[in-house]
Simulated scan of single mutants.
Amino acid sequence: MPDLALRRRELGAFLRSRRERITPSEAGIPPTGRRRTPGLRREELAFLAGISATWYTYLEQGRDIRPSDQVLTALATALRLTEHERDHLFHLAGTPAAAGPDEPEPVDPAVTAIPMLLRHNPAYLTGASYDLLAVNPAAAELFPDLDTAGEARPNLARWMFTSPAARRVLVDWEREAQVLLARLRAAAGLHPADPRFTSLVEDLHAASPEVRKWWPRYDIQVRRTGTKRLRHPRRGIVTMTHTALHVAEHPEQTLVIYHWPES
Rank of each mutant, 00 (worst) to 15 (best):
L48N: 04
A139S: 09
P192R: 00
R80W: 02
R217P: 00
D64F: 03
A123H: 08
L92I: 05
T162Y: 15
W214H: 15
G33A: 05
E174M: 00
W159A: 10
L117I: 02
V111F: 08
P261L: 09
P115L: 06
Y218G: 06
D145A: 13
A177I: 00
P106Y: 04
L11Y: 04
P209D: 12
A134N: 10
P67L: 02
R66T: 12
D194T: 05
A5L: 11
A207K: 07
F197N: 01
W215I: 01
Y124F: 15
R16M: 09
G62E: 00
A244T: 14
R234E: 15
T243E: 15
H84V: 02
L170T: 01
Y258W: 08
A76N: 01
L181G: 06
E83K: 09
E176S: 15
A5E: 10
V171K: 00
I257F: 05
G50Q: 06
V71T: 14
T148K: 08
D219N: 06
R42N: 07
A138N: 10
P38G: 07
G94Y: 01
A99M: 07
W55E: 09
E252S: 12
R16E: 09
T73R: 14
E105Y: 15
E174S: 07
L184C: 01
T23I: 06
D219H: 12
P216N: 05
D147V: 00
H191T: 07
L230D: 13
K228V: 10
E10R: 11
G39F: 04
A207E: 15
Q178P: 00
T227L: 11
L45V: 08
V256R: 00
V107C: 13
E83W: 11
P96D: 08
L230P: 11
K228Y: 12
R9G: 01
T225C: 09
S52K: 11
R9S: 08
A177C: 03
Q70H: 14
L146F: 06
L45D: 09
R86P: 06
R158K: 12
G12L: 08
I51C: 13
W260T: 03
L142T: 06
V135S: 11
I220N: 01
I257Y: 06
L184P: 01
R66Y: 08
E249D: 14
V238Y: 02
R119T: 11
Y130K: 01
E26C: 00
P31F: 10
P164Y: 03
L170H: 13
L75D: 14
P261A: 09
A186W: 05
M116A: 12
V201N: 00
G100C: 12
M116C: 02
T23Q: 13
L200C: 03
V179R: 15
N155W: 06
G226K: 06
L180C: 02
R223C: 05
P38I: 03
P195Q: 02
W55Q: 04
L4C: 01
T239K: 03
S68E: 09
A177S: 10
L200M: 07
D64N: 13
L200K: 00
P2Y: 00
N155T: 04
H88A: 03
A76D: 10
P192M: 05
I29E: 08
A5R: 09
P251E: 09
A152L: 14
L133I: 09
P144N: 08
L230W: 07
S68W: 04
R217A: 13
E83C: 01
H205Y: 03
W214T: 15
R80H: 12
